[in-house]
């Protein structure tokens, strides 16, 4: 019985991997196809790969620049959201005060409103104070979308941290900030990592604001990827190559933080 279970477990994991990765695989393999192979019917699995699409993508200076822009925007907006959001989550998780649940809800609700209607006022403000086409404007806007996630996930995470650790620290004379800094932050890393991944991915992929608020200087990766869609011709190979190039940095980021997503860390610390 355990062996069958183990087998099922392995097979399940493989299936998860295969299904998750398949469309991505299809995108990557399409990015190595010529247009003729891409549009062959039925689709071809084996083909002579071509680097032409990548050559075209990288010949376009824009793509590299866009990746850098996206990286700047995603790192700063996520970083700032974590810096701002974790103390707030700590307060929401640990303190009692009036209006706490309303405040918590208000944080979350910042994600609810449709960006289509906020785009215009934000555009007008940005234009007035000269922030159009800068990294800063995107970072600021994205913070408002990432903060709710950080506050939310981290509040939950912090709540699950046993109180006795805190009591012990307090007896040793730790300040509230010490407790936050030395106990909650390190133990909350899995939650922080998960919220940071979501935040990073959100700002990495955001299209609507990026389209409206940027011009030439700060085009982000999704903006460039969609600029090939002229509504007229679809250079599938080029789009798929750009798509692949865009996904890579996020995957690398995920690899970097993924070890924090394991429970091992919490386990060691609790002991």
């Amino acid at each position: 019985m355990p062996r069958v279970g183990r087998l099922l477990h392995g097979a399940g994991l493989l299936a998860v991997f295969a299904v998750t990765i398949f469309p991505f695989y299809w995108m990557v393999s399409s990015s190595f196809k010529t247009q003729t192979d891409l549009l062959a019917s039925p689709p071809v699995w084996l083909f002579t790969p071509t680097l032409a699409n990548y050559a075209e993508v990288f010949a376009d200076q824009k793509v590299v620049g866009a990746i850098v822009n996206s990286l700047i925007v995603a790192v700063f907006s996520t970083g700032l959201a974590v810096v701002l959001g974790t103390p707030a989550a700590f307060a929401l998780a640990r303190y009692e005060f009036r209006g706490k649940s309303d405040l918590w809800f208000w944080f979350i609700s910042n994600r609810f409103i449709s960006p289509i209607v906020l785009a215009l006022p934000i555009y007008l403000v940005a234009q007035n104070i000269g922030l159009l086409d800068t990294h800063l404007v995107l970072i600021l806007v994205y913070i408002t979308f990432i903060l709710p996630i950080v506050v939310w996930i981290c509040t939950d995470q912090f709540r699950s941290i046993p109180r006795d650790l805190e009591e012990a620290a307090r007896l040793e004379g730790a300040s509230q900030f010490d407790i936050f800094w030395r106990i909650y932050l390190p133990l909350g890393v899995p939650g922080i990592a998960v919220s940071a991944i979501f935040g990073f991915i959100f700002s990495w992929n955001e299209l609507l604001y990026a389209l409206v608020l940027t011009r030439r200087a700060v085009q982000t990766a999704p903006v460039v990827a969609t600029s090939f869609m002229s509504g007229y011709e679809l250079p599938w190979g080029k789009i798929m190559a750009t798509g692949t190039v865009i996904v890579l940095p996020v995957t690398i980021f995920a690899l970097l933080v993924s070890r924090h997503m394991v429970r091992g860390l919490t386990m060691g610390a609790t002991k």
Binding site: V16, F17, T20, P23, W204, I239, L255, S258
Partner: peptide, 17 residues
């Protein structure tokens, strides 16, 4: 790690895909 990939794919590209 593979779970991150679908999330990380730009939505507009997902549509084209």
């Amino acid at each position: 790690v593979s779970l991150v990939v679908p999330l990380a794919t730009t939505y507009a590209v997902v549509g084209l895909l």
